[in-house]
Simulated scan of single mutants.
Amino acid sequence: MTHGNARIWHASDDLVARYAEGSLPEPDAWSLEKHLEGCAGCAAQVSQAVRSTTAGAVLAQVRGAVLEAAPTVRQPLARTPPATPALPRLARLLWAAGPAVRGAWLPAVLLVAVGATALGYGGGFPGARALLLAIAPVVPVAGVALSYGPHADPLHEVVAATPAGGLRLALTRTAAVLAVSLPLLTLTGLLLPASGAPTAAAWLLPGLALTLATLVLASFAGCRTAAGVTAGGWLCAVLAPVPAAPGGEATARLAEQLSRCLDGAGAQGAWAAAAALSAVLLAARRPAYDRPIRR
């Protein structure tokens, strides 16, 4: 950055090039974008640099589509002034929440909750809570896998290079997934008969730890691969003894294995430590989210 005096500065060619490539650190990107709000010269320089990148063609197409649709959008909004501020906020909220909350994932979570309730009461299945506790920790993991990455955003490469993208966007969408799945599945567990299974809230710390571990692994291998590793590892751990159970003891064996994994201060303390360690590792891996995450 070239400083004219203590209050006036202009972006250097190197700064503009790094911003256009998406390699500028987030604090510097925020500072530059704030400067561009009041400096037409630097704004024109940045605009020209971005247009010369691969993303420039994509941005030009998006801009053209928005401008083409603008007259159609403005006319109905002009007739309904009170709705004008709400629509952009709703659109931003839905975009930030991510495809997992907007798409098929939310009905899938509801299906898990309704299915467990139907098994417990309509089907008379005594191990409904145990089965729910075995599946519940992988539900938010699946939501995270569906929320972030090239498969979730057509413009993922562009978004990941902006200050609003990267880890911040991944955490926003993860929070949306957890805000839906945690209370819904925990409430469902409370409504089901215990039948020797752990308490309905026993899966919360494991679910949080597995979700954070997925975000850490995603910085190396992509969201879907990371989700497959963490969810698969959990399911193998809790379901491994079940096939070897004789006769109708599969439900009891599952409840016993879940008790080993979830019950007691030792198990919950281990999951809390795993969640804290994953959070620390995720903070250390934050720069990896400044680049597009692989599938």
Rank of each mutant, 00 (worst) to 15 (best):
A209W: 03
A213M: 08
A134V: 00
L258M: 08
G232H: 06
T72Q: 15
A128V: 00
G123S: 09
T84M: 09
L119P: 02
G228K: 05
A104R: 13
E26V: 07
C39N: 05
A267F: 13
A145I: 02
H10N: 11
V216F: 01
G207T: 05
L155W: 10
P82R: 03
L59K: 10
T117A: 10
L90A: 08
W95K: 10
P99E: 11
T54F: 13
A272Q: 06
A70N: 14
G124T: 07
S219M: 01
G149R: 02
A275E: 02
V50I: 11
T80V: 14
Q268L: 11
A237I: 10
L192C: 00
V58K: 09
L254W: 03
A255M: 05
G38K: 07
L32C: 03
I135T: 07
A100S: 13
W95V: 12
G120S: 05
W234G: 00
T225G: 13
T53S: 05
A274R: 02
T186V: 05
A69M: 13
D13E: 15
A226G: 04
V73I: 15
T225K: 14
A252D: 15
D263Y: 11
R51F: 11
R51E: 15
V216P: 00
A44Q: 12
E157F: 08
A175C: 08
R102D: 09
A164M: 09
D28M: 11
P27L: 02
C261R: 14
P140V: 10
G38Y: 06
L93S: 11
G264D: 07
S147T: 04
T54R: 15
Y121P: 04
C236D: 08
V216N: 00
G122P: 00
A104P: 07
S219I: 01
G266R: 08
V141G: 04
A70I: 13
R286H: 10
M1G: 13
W30R: 15
L191W: 04
W105Q: 04
A202T: 06
W30G: 14
V280Y: 10
T188N: 03
P241F: 01
P183M: 09
V58A: 14
A202D: 14
A160K: 00
